[in-house]
Nucleic acid binder design. Structure first.
Lengths: 366, 366
DNA sequence: ATCGTTGTTGATAGCGCTACCATAAGCCGG
DNA sequence: CCGGCTTATGGTAGCGCTATCAACAACGAT
């Protein structure tokens, strides 16, 4: 009766909450957005009303009124699909909460010029900030282009966090060290390592972590069997071949990501080696591939979805602070990783084996 | 001077376009939304102005004013990560265009009660429609729950399209038949088939397509080596083992999806069989796994992202028509598939060779 | 008592767009 | 030449929220 609302949707609005709490809509807005200068008692009564009415703000109205960022770009370059889908899920969730849209684009080319070109085309559409998951977070041309256009960027899992840049990461070095310590504590003393793509600084961090742990156990890092990989399954195949063809083959292989670890399993099987009885294999990332293969991979879990959420939030905070003119100090957030022990690792066989014959397998899989 | 706009963003609005075209904002709105009752000359001049000013409507304002759907649910249950990421990319793009948000949730349980429970929890939040990608599109409890709540659903790649339901699919049967014809034309006469999960009707369609092609070539489907699989890598492992352990092992394996095909490759390698010289292996879906493994898989490409886009559009159209009270007739859209030939398939080894040309391939048309 | 100064709240005016009328123009048969 | 109809266009009033600023306490410091 009060308002002859033209189209009465049954939705409950901020006005309803205000009425219920006996305050103005503005105060409700302040409470909801964590505004300062609200008396504690007022805040509580508003919160109560929100709860009672089961109110949830209309994001469309919010971003319209606030003139907030509505489009955030996400530029990706075929990382593993497992990584991407996890990442998207996290980013999507955060975007929904914030009421902004994700504009996603792929940039597959390795060519710097093409990367810059794609970035420009992408950035001059209407995105107000860009999220750069790996491996693009390490791409110099893309970062440079974005910087010159003046669009805020948040990099994820990037190697060298810029002093004034936004970055979300895990501690790759420590995580790799933990995994190595785990293998060492199992009794392995001859651990083969497959490095990641040399352009990605995370690769170096992981390698360093591997060496750290070796040294802690009094082993010589320089003597460890290390092969170059490129984060791809294919590269894992050949790196594993080389590792296992050495005169004194390792009893365990630590691959810098799950794709390469899966490849190592494949090679082991082709050579008739039982995993983990004759060869332990561990990975990094805990993508869905880790539980797809048989046996399931022992690996390091990255909270991929959470990292994407954190990245978006960091970006939006930065955008907000830029708009209000305050300083946009760089910000780096490190999330927790975790060691996930599954079936692909175990203590080494007691006797150093002699070379096996790559022959017909004896046993069927599950 | 005209308007002391409180916060002047540099954005161009519908008013700007109206001014440039010499009409009212309302008319511009009508043109943009494909409204009726606009003179052709007017429409054109508005469109020109839109182009000239490079105008793009503000989705937040649009959905606020129109009271349109803003949240669309997407319930998934770990299909392969590769499938999911492609699907999300497509859905995301369509959602952005439409100015609505995707609310995604996973429902991993196989238990009917839990599925129904999860669905209820999900649906009673504020989603106005739900997209169901496979394998959930075949879940009876979920569909039933959604139906009883009265939320519109669009199923993707579901087996039995409801007469009055929304559905997006490809022609699984024909696609499987094409793949089989391809293997037959290569000279294979003993083709092993790994079926998909029996609960998914697409599995049956693919199996039927396989049989169709066999019959066209005058072969007896009942004599073909067929093993049950469940779309998982693991199930592909054991199915392949069984296939290759037969007294008269097949010269080619057609797996109902890429995951199982990848598993077949792994088994072949373990047995020292060269792919494709000694054994051809083909898959279905063309997920990223297909190009990850070595050798790369010959497979059937589903336009996954496009299917997701189509699904969302179908759903939004339905929602709109419901709102305006008109009939919501069911709608099924079938998209095009494609045969992708890569490295994992080739002519059979010369051993059981004799008859080369297909008996009567005349039927094989289209 | 007077003047800031800080903290807390509300009234108002839009954000960019579309639903809903009102209006005006064209067309027909009577 | 008037109603009654259809078709094309514009004016107005919000959608639900927040920025802005004014108002009004409460509190020392002057």
């Amino acid at each position: 009766m009060s308002k002859p609302s033209r189209r009465s949707r049954g939705t409950i609005t901020i006005e309803d909450v205000a009425r219920a709490a006996g305050v103005s809509a503005m105060t409700v807005s302040r409470v909801i957005n964590g505004g300062k200068n609200v008396r504690e008692t007022t805040r509580r009564s508003v919160l109560d009303a929100v709860e009672k009415l089961n109110y949830s703000p209309n994001t469309a109205a919010r971003s319209l009124a606030a003139g907030e960022a509505t489009h955030i770009g996400l530029l990706y370059a075929n990382p593993s699909a497992a990584y991407l889908s996890q990442f998207l899920i996290g980013a999507l969730e955060a975007a929904r909460r914030a009421g902004c849209h994700l504009v996603i684009e792929s940039c597959t080319s390795e060519d710097p010029d093409e990367q810059a070109e794609a970035t420009r085309r992408f950035a001059t559409s209407d995105v107000e900030g860009v999220i750069l998951p790996p491996p693009l977070s390490d791409s110099v041309p893309i970062m440079a282009e974005l910087q010159s256009i003046g669009i805020p960027v948040v990099t994820v899992a990037m190697g060298i966090p810029q002093p004034d840049g936004l970055n979300v990461r895990i501690d790759d070095r420590e995580a790799a060290a933990e995994m190595t310590r785990y293998l060492l504590s199992l009794g392995h003393r001859n651990i083969g390592f497959i490095k990641g793509h040399p352009n990605h600084i995370a690769s170096h961090d992981r390698t360093r972590g591997f060496f750290d742990a070796l040294e802690e156990f009094g082993l010589d890092p320089d003597a460890a069997p290390v092969e170059q990989g490129y984060f791809t399954y294919r590269s894992g195949l050949s790196a594993s071949e080389r590792l296992l063809s050495r005169p004194n083959p390792p009893t365990a292989i630590f691959a810098s990501n799950d794709d390469m670890a899966a490849a190592a399993i494949s090679v082991a099987h082709r050579r008739g080696l039982h995993v983990p009885a004759e060869l332990s294999i561990v990975g990094f990332d805990d993508t869905s591939l880790a539980t797809t293969v048989w046996p399931e991979l022992t690996t390091v879990k990255q909270p991929i979805a959470a990292m994407a959420e954190a990245a978006l939030e960091l970006l939006l905070t930065d955008l907000r602070s830029r708009r209000s003119g305050s300083e946009h100090k760089g910000n780096v957030r490190a999330l927790e990783h975790a060691l996930i022990v599954r079936e692909s690792s175990g203590p080494p066989a007691r006797a150093p084996k002699r070379a096996r014959v790559p022959a017909r397998a004896s046993k069927a899989g599950a």
